[in-house]
Nucleic acid binder design. Structure first.
Length: 449
RNA sequence: GGAGACGUCGCCAAGUGGUAAGGCCGUGGUCUGCAAAACCGCUAUCGACAGUUCGAAUCUGUCCGUCUCCUCCA
């Protein structure tokens, strides 16, 4: 029985999708004004694994992830670069896909963008106004938080507490400082990112896009709504307010939030400037090492990222690959019972709120058993689990430079003629080239250090 | 100030009542011409204190330490 931790109840709940056999999930995507950092990468790896596991369990999964391509920061960054905001976001979306593909994150079923859903967003806002949940002031539209009685249910805070801690500048136009924007009127120099609306030219506030687009693609109620921990408040709280004010139905059954990636024990974020981009990290690290690094920690716990950490994980990753590269000479002797037991353990781990850390531990147990037995069934099983975790094992671009290959061949000759001195000398040279040679019965293997 | 999370081997990290998974590192050995890889071993009583219990890393309380949200943020 799969159990999922629901932020809404703060408990692990048995997972039952609305429609038997079909899981509808919506994951908040990135605001595309810059390259993704590894905090983003973690979020999408997490939800990618959740999706893969649900499929493994036999569910059909509809996965929707948006792109926020209309936003203050995009406008600002584009202005700095002297390009159009939508050109910037378009370029960054392409970069997003480049990064995620390297991490083996499967494509979503759809990637709705704000700029392409103005109609839905505008009519959503109109309905909110009609029902008395929103009001218009000078071309801006605000959601009136106090009208939605359940406000604060997700983030577990009450309106009065929030009032006390308000530090944001008071906006005179709002009826209440907690009210948030549904529609922002166009300011000077924003012609390029403005759309016509009943309230004049402008653009949507941040939260409304997810309410409007999730409804469009998944309906009023869907199963899993995911995102980073930092989205719980205000983003998801506000989404709930908007969506449920209209539909009077739960927006999502399960609210799932992943923990942060930190550096030096601080949250990694664009505003703090303490982040590593996916690109930079993958420049000299194996993508699957990063993926494995994420999966070795439970998705809700924070991860403190460091260079040392990923280097260590690379060693662990290589271990998995090596085990899978074993040539199976022996007949399989592992009983089906044993295989079934492993499979059960794997599912028990994943059923427990997607405990990938536990699942990965099992993977290493199998690696160990496989190294000992060289059993085909174990190899297949390992392959099966690794696929659910989305870890690919064909090592990327293992092109051995010709000179290294030549040195290795010379060394093999020296070795065969028992010229140990020359053999060791050549091994040194190979090391200097950044490769390591491992002897095998039938020759050798070369590995990039 | 309000809300919440965490503190497990040198490092990373599972485990939420029955006696400590896994990875990295280190280390002894087997194998090897020597290495590497692999294999066989070794390495923790769970932040502190008090309590509940036959029994606690796991529950309660206090304290110490770290972090997050309350503002854009995966």
């Amino acid at each position: 029985m799969l159990k999922v931790y629901n932020t809404l109840s703060k408990e692990k709940e048995e997972f039952h999708p609305q429609i038997e056999g079909l899981v509808k999930m919506y994951v908040c995507g990135v605001t595309v004004y810059d390259f993704c950092h590894i905090g983003h990468a973690r979020a999408y790896v997490v939800f990618d694994v959740i999706r893969r596991y649900l499929r493994y369990k036999g569910y059909k999964v509809t996965y929707v992830q948006n792109f926020t391509d209309v936003d203050d920061k995009i406008i600002k960054r584009a202005a700095e670069k002297g390009i159009l905001p939508l050109d910037l976001s378009k370029a960054m979306i392409a970069e997003y896909f480049t990064d995620m593909e390297r991490l083996n994150i499967a494509l979503a079923d759809s990637y709705p963008k704000v700029s392409e859903h103005m109609e839905q967003i505008i009519s959503f806002i109109e309905e909110l106004i009609a029902k008395g949940y929103a009001y218009v002031v000078k071309g801006d539209v605000y959601f009136e938080v106090r009208k939605f009685k359940e406000y604060g249910r997700l983030s577990k805070r009450n309106i009065e507490d929030m009032q006390a801690g308000v530090r944001i500048e008071v906006n005179q136009d709002k009826r209440d400082s907690l009210d948030f924007s549904l529609w922002k009127s166009a300011k000077l120099n924003e012609e390029n990112v403005s759309w016509d609306s009943p309230w004049g030219k402008g653009r949507p506030g941040w939260h409304i896009e997810c309410s409007a687009m999730s409804k469009e693609y998944l309906g009023e109620t869907f199963d899993i709504h995911g995102g980073g921990h930092d989205l719980i408040f205000p983003h998801h709280e506000n989404e709930i307010a908007q969506s449920e004010a209209l539909s009077r139905n739960p927006m999502a059954k399960y609210w799932v939030h992943n923990g942060f990636v930190k550096t030096n024990k601080e949250k990694m974020s664009k505003s703090l400037g303490n982040y590593f981009t996916v690109r930079d990290v993958l420049k000299d690290n194996e993508p699957m090492a990063l993926r494995l690094l994420f999966l070795m920690t439970h998705y809700r716990a924070p991860i403190n990222y460091s260079i040392e950490e990923i280097k260590e994980t690379k060693v662990a990753y290589d271990k998995i690959c090596k085990a899978l590269n074993i040539k199976h000479v022996a007949e399989s002797t592992v009983p089906e019972m044993k295989i079934a037991a492993y499979r059960q353990q794997f599912q028990d781990a994943m059923d427990d709120d997607f405990n990938t850390a536990k699942a990965v531990a099992l993977v290493f147990n199998i690696v160990h058993a496989l190294n000992k037995s060289q059993d085909k069934k174990l190899s297949d099983l390992l392959q099966e689990f690794v696929a659910v975790l989305g870890i690919t094992t064909q090592v990327s671009e293992q092109v051995i430079p010709e000179e290294v290959e030549t040195l290795a061949k010379e060394r093999l000759e020296a070795k065969n003629s028992k010229n140990w001195a020359l053999s060791d000398e050549l091994r040194e040279k190979i090391n200097d080239c950044g490769y390591q040679i491992e002897d095998r019965k039938d020759g050798y293997t070369l590995k990039k250090i």
